[in-house]
Design a binder for these strands. Structure first.
Length: 414
RNA sequence: GGCCCCUUCAUCUAGCGGUUAGGAUUCAUGGUUUUCAUCCAUGCCACAGGAGUUCGAGUCUCCUAGGGGUCACCA
């Protein structure tokens, strides 16, 4: 089983999303189930509603899961496991107040039963620490390669906090064990936790094998909210994040299902990826171009294939790459025009001519008709006409726009 | 401080012992296009520094400098 674990203590980041996608894709590749886990052990920092927000985002990206749970549901199991380690003398009670040390700074490990009972009676706060391993812990990270941690590095990790709740590290190790996670794929900054987790699982008698793949961070990444607001679509974002993860792939433009065939976890670079908006823009444009015309128009408030085709003219000519840019280009077609100034006079003339004109099928006949009726030609005609039709002084050639707006002509010019 | 990762044109990068060190963006020049833009051609520009291994080092080893990450009762 693969898992995507995230704490509901803040917004989902681009890094988080990439990790979710990679977990999903590896699960699909291997035909293993995909678990979504809310690591909500920190009651203070948890933010109400973040968990449902995460699920909505995953749904938006079509990352379907087979199982989902909150880590807090397992709290009593984790506590039981911690107590078992205590009984087996693999863990010990520690009263050191020194919180910035990964080891007990005193001799708590030698505490006697009597001393322990007295502690409890007096209500002195204490934590439970796992004893340090005796040997160096080694594992082979799929991305970073061999990693060795001497016993001092692993230390004596706290497994139960002073409020008797399992620590995030311990809870995570326990749940990975209980869910029998085959490969842990997560942020690179967890790599130093890995020896501690291996140590915990070993102490609990876990014999299953767990592979690890730590993904480097993505530098310079914008927030997901910003990307959504600017009109980047999920297909393009997935495409880009997978491209950053497998930069040597032969394809650069693809969908998630296509990528499942060739994606290779071992090919993820260990150097941090740099987020480049330009590349995403290009992919976004391509994905928008591939969409169904009518669906495309629905992204910015229309429901008509002709408007979708109109949008594609802007996309093809690279006048727009995002949904919000399309909206900014096409909405004004239908908003009231200004007829002020010299340009406005010509626009009024053209407007009246078009109002009376018959339905003209091609731009050539339309333009010829306007030339004949208005006496205008060249730029004197093209510019006011462009302004009248598109409410802008620039854009794709009018003859490419005309076929898609001719059925809206009267609406557009009014 | 310990441990891990990184350093190639202005920018993002390819490269995994022998290359004229490749591409993309930017920039410059010329051309196409009666809007803006596009597009085409050409040009400019790089291996952090130092030792070593080798017939041969951007590539392997070590040192120096600089950047990032991590060492919690946070994930």
């Amino acid at each position: 089983m693969l898992r995507f674990a995230l704490s509901p203590t803040g917004d989902m980041t681009i890094d988080d999303l990439r990790i979710a996608i990679v977990n999903f894709i590896v699960a699909q590749k291997r035909g293993e189930p995909f678990l979504v886990r809310m690591d909500d052990t920190d009651k203070v920092r948890n933010i109400e509603g973040k968990d449902t927000e995460f699920m909505q985002i995953l749904e938006k990206f079509s990352l379907t899961h087979d199982q989902v749970y909150h880590q807090s549901e397992h709290q009593s199991i984790h506590q039981t496991l911690a107590l078992r380690l205590l009984e087996e003398q693999k863990a010990f009670v520690c009263t050191c107040t020194n919180t910035d040390s990964s080891t007990c700074s005193g001799t708590c490990a030698q505490m006697t039963e009597d001393a322990y009972s007295r502690l409890k009676a007096e209500g002195t706060p204490f934590v439970v620490r796992l004893k340090a391993p005796k040997e160096t812990i080694c594992f082979n990270d799929i991305i970073f390669g061999e990693y060795n941690a001497i016993p001092e590095e692993t230390g004596e990790p706290v497994i139960l906090g002073s409020d008797a709740t399992p620590t995030a590290l311990f809870a995570s190790a326990c749940d990975d064990m209980l869910s029998n996670i085959s490969t842990v794929i997560r942020h690179a900054w967890h790599i130093g936790n890995t020896p501690k987790e291996i140590h915990i699982k070993t102490a609990l008698g876990y014999t299953g094998n767990t592979d690890y793949a730590h993904l480097p961070n993505i530098e310079n990444a914008p927030s997901l909210k910003q990307l959504f607001k600017e009109g980047y679509i999920p297909d393009a974002i997935i495409n880009y994040l997978l491209l950053l993860s497998n930069p040597k792939s032969e394809q650069t433009f693809f969908t998630l299902p296509e990528a499942i065939a060739w994606f290779d976890l071992a090919q993820v670079p260990k150097t941090p990826a740099v987020f480049e908006m330009e590349t995403l823009r290009k992919l976004n444009r391509e994905h928008l171009l591939k969409m169904d015309d009518r669906q495309l128009s629905m992204l910015f408030g229309f429901a008509d294939a002709a408007i979708g085709k109109l949008a594609k003219v802007y996309l093809e000519e690279e006048k727009a790459s995002t949904v919000s840019e399309l909206e900014a280009a096409i909405r004004p077609f239908f908003s009231p025009k200004s007829f002020d100034g010299e340009m406005g006079e010509k626009m009024s003339i053209l407007k009246n001519i078009i109002w009376e004109a018959p339905m003209l099928d091609s731009y050539e006949t339309f333009e010829a008709y306007l030339v004949k009726e208005s006496g205008l030609s060249g730029d004197a005609l093209a510019l006011p006409l462009r302004k009248l039709l598109t409410n802008s002084t620039e854009g794709p050639a009018l003859d490419t726009l005309y076929p898609h707006i001719k059925s809206y002509l009267l609406e557009v010019i009014s």
